[in-house]
Structure formats: C-alpha cells, structure tokens
Design a protein around this nucleic acid. Structure first.
Length: 271
DNA sequence: AAATGAACCTGTTTGC
DNA sequence: TGCAAACAGGTTCATT
C-alpha cells in the first residue's frame, strides 16, 4: 500500500502514541505474513523508545538494544486502539501497551513482513544492504542520478522504482514525479540529458514533500494511526486518471503497462 | 547483465 | 443481477 510519504505519515502518527510505552503483552494470531514472523514475545516487558523509517520500512526502537523492522507490503496498517477494541478479520499482531492502548497490525493481503535486528547493526541487515539513498536526504542529488542513468537503457520509471538506485518511490510517486518533470516514463534513462535529470531530482523531492505535508495518499485503505485519511490523492495529476483530461494541456491521460505495473502519463506534456 | 513475468494473497472494481 | 476477470500502493525470485 504505502510508499515513502505514507510510511512517513504513519511514523509521525505512531511516534507520540507508542514512544515511551512498555509492551505488556504480545499476541500473534498467525505465525507468518509474507515471511515467518520473528519471536515477538521477547519484547514483553520492553519499552518502545522511538519509531524511525528507512525506505518503506518502519523501525520500532526497543530499549533492549533491538529494532523491530516492519514492512507494510501493499495493505499493511498499524492502528493504536483501546485494548478493549474488538479484533478485526485481518488483524495479525497485537501489542498491549501500558496505559490501556494496543498497537495493532492489520494486513489483508499479508504482503507485509517483520524482522528483528540489533540496533547497532541495523545497517548490515540483509534488507538494508544495497539500498539506495533516501530521496529526501543529502545523498540524492543531480550528480548521483545522472551517474545512475548513465548508459542505462531501462525505462526511467523502472529505474526510479529500483530500490538499489533510490528508495521510497513506488508506482504512484514515480508517475507523478515524471509528469511534473515532463519526462516520458518509457524513455531510456541513459538518453535523458543532465539538466532534465537534475530537474527530475527536484520534482521527486517536491512531490514527496508535498505528499507528506498532505498526510499521504489514501487510495483504498491507507489510513493514519488515528484512522484519518490522507489528502494527496486529490492532487494526483496523472495517477489513476486514464482517459481523463490532463490538467495542464487537456489531452487524455494515457495508461500503459511497464513491467506488469500500470503507468499513467500525459503524451502531450511528457517526452 | 538486464528486462520481463510470476509469485505471494485478498478485496474491490469492471465488464460481459 | 451474477459471475468472472482484471486490477491494486511492494518485493523477490525465476526465466528469457
């Protein structure tokens, strides 16, 4: 479900609700999601000291020196509810916290997954080795993207969604960023000039920052920890708008399939 | 090496 | 109206 802005919004929503709280009880209602779940019961009695993010992973810092790493897949959701709240059909894990609240994980498709690592050694965890830079961090800049694109024949959209190049950008924000930059999603990465790539870096950063500020994009099931939706989907220029007029030039938005994923773009504005 | 497709799983929307 | 097919925010693995 979530791309970087959604995960970031979830993180900031969860932070004040769970930070500093002790885990009184852990219940897992199945032994696996996408992969086998780690032994979460070991966190009983520990405190959550913070919630961070790397790429699309949520990182719960625990006071036993470990970090609980959680990926939401397509449909994963975290909620903080009263411990009295009735369980949900797709609720898989529940952490009862001191103070009467519970941190609950739901995931209808179960593409999500979780793991545990020593906080000191997080960077060497297999899920993080080889990941590209954060798009809103200082290591993602024009020089870097130009280097990544050099001699690459892959379509620029596929390159943006490759986590080894850049993390956090998924199907929605790749499409929206390329529209804003005026670049056709199918264009070979190596055939885009440096100035245009430099502009693309700015567009990616702008789109992501605006999406975070808007509270993320609620398509079908993205909601914050408090259950409220995000509003960035109202700002989509091309995503999900096949056949509708381009908001800039009026020509109908097109949809093509790249690597099995829908890509939306405007043939008039993107070259 | 690099690009595409399949797989994972369920829910919702679309089309006949 | 009913049913089946298509499609969905992600990632990994196998196959051209």
């Amino acid at each position: 479900m979530p791309e970087l802005p959604e995960v970031e919004v979830i993180r900031t929503g969860l932070m004040p609700l769970v930070s500093g709280h002790r885990v009184d009880r852990v219940q897992s209602f199945r032994s696996d999601l996408r992969y086998p779940l780690p032994d979460l019961a070991t966190f009983t009695g520990c405190r959550i000291t913070g919630v961070r993010r790397r790429a699309k992973y949520l990182l719960f810092e625990i006071d036993n020196g470990q970090t609980l790493i959680w990926h939401l897949g397509m449909t994963g959701q975290f909620h903080v509810l009263s411990q009295e709240a009735a369980s949900h059909p797709h609720e898989h894990v529940r952490f009862d916290l001191d103070g009467g609240q519970a941190l609950v994980y739901r995931d209808s498709r179960r593409f999500g997954y979780a793991g545990v690592a020593k906080t000191r050694h997080l960077k060497t965890h297999p899920w993080f080795v080889g990941l590209g830079p954060e798009p809103l961090g200082i290591h993602f800049d024009a020089d870097y993207l130009i280097l990544c694109c050099k001699n690459r024949r892959t379509p620029i959209k596929s390159l943006l969604m490759d986590g080894r190049v850049l993390v956090g950008v998924g199907n929605i924000y790749a499409a929206e960023s390329l529209f804003r930059a005026g670049i056709h999603p199918g264009r070979a990465a190596g055939k885009i000039g440096g100035l245009r790539l430099s502009h693309l870096v700015s567009c990616i950063q702008q789109v992501l920052a605006e999406a975070i500020a808007a509270g993320g994009s609620s398509i079908s099931d993205f909601v914050h920890a408090d259950g409220k939706p995000g509003y960035f989907s109202h700002a989509f220029q091309v995503y999900g708008r096949e056949h509708l007029p381009c908001l800039v030039c009026g020509r109908p938005v097109k949809r093509i399939v790249q690597s099995g994923r829908s890509t939306f773009y405007c043939g008039g504005c993107q070259h």
